[in-house]
Amino acid sequence: MDLKLKVWRQKNPESPGGLVDYDATGVNPDMSFLEMLDVVNEGLIEKGEDPIAFDHDCREGICGSCSLTINGIPHGPQKAIATCQLHMRHFENGQTVVIEPFRARPFPVMKDLIVDRGRFDQIIEAGGYISARTGSAPEANSIPIPKQTTDRAMDAAECIGCGACVAACPNASAMLFVGAKVTHLNSMPQGRPERDRRVLKMVASMEEAGFGNCTNTFECVAACPKEIKGEVMAQMYRDYVKALFRQAIRPE
C-alpha cells in the first residue's frame, strides 16, 4: 500500500521546523511503523537526502525510546502500545499520516522527531529511588509484603518513561509519570521512610522543569502504552498534601 507522510523536520533545537511531505510506497501491512520509516529513510539516503531522525532502540515496546505523535496521537491510534509495536495494517491505502515529535517545553526537539527527555531523569534523580546502600539489605523475606500491595506497585512500576503522557496531555503535564513512580515507591514498605521527601522533591523537580498542570482530562492514561492508571496521580496528590502537612508540623 501507499501512504502520504507529513513528517516534522527540524535541523536542530534552534532552527524552526515544519512538516515535509514524503511518499511511502509499497508499504507492506506486516511492517511495523518504524520499519516503514526505515524504508523511507533508505530511499532518502539513496537519493542523497538527509534521512528522518527518530529515537528507537528495543523495538519491542519496553525501552521507551520511540516517541512519535502519529496523526495527533502519541504512539499512534492503537491502544496500549508504543510506536514500535504499531503495525501498518492499521492504516489504509492512500491515507495521509502526520508524524510529529512529542511536544512540550521540557522536551525540546533536538532533531526532526528526536526530543530530549532528560528532564524525566532529573525527576527520578530528585527522589525516584529508595536509598539502599549495596550490602545493607536484610534477608529478602524478612518483610512480608501483601500481594495486593506488590501488584499495585507493579502496576505503577510498569512505566517505560516514554513521555507519551506529557505528549498527550493538553497541558503537557507529567503527573502520570511522576505519579507512577511515587505510587510504586511510596506504596512499598521499603519506600515508607523516604515517602515525604520523595514526593516533595519529585514534584518540585517536575515543576522546575516546566511541565504543565493537570486538569484531569486523563488523556495521559489513554495514551499510556503500559496503561498506567489515573489512580497513581490521585495517590501522589494525597501523598503530597500529607507530606506538606507533616512538613509544616514537624519539619524534616
Partner: peptide, 14 residues
C-alpha cells in the same frame, strides 16, 4: 508548557 503547538492533535478520549 507547550510553546510549539502540534500541527495536528487528536483528543483520544477527553
Amino acid at each position: 508548557a507547550r510553546p510549539e503547538p502540534y500541527q495536528l492533535k487528536t483528543p483520544i478520549q477527553a
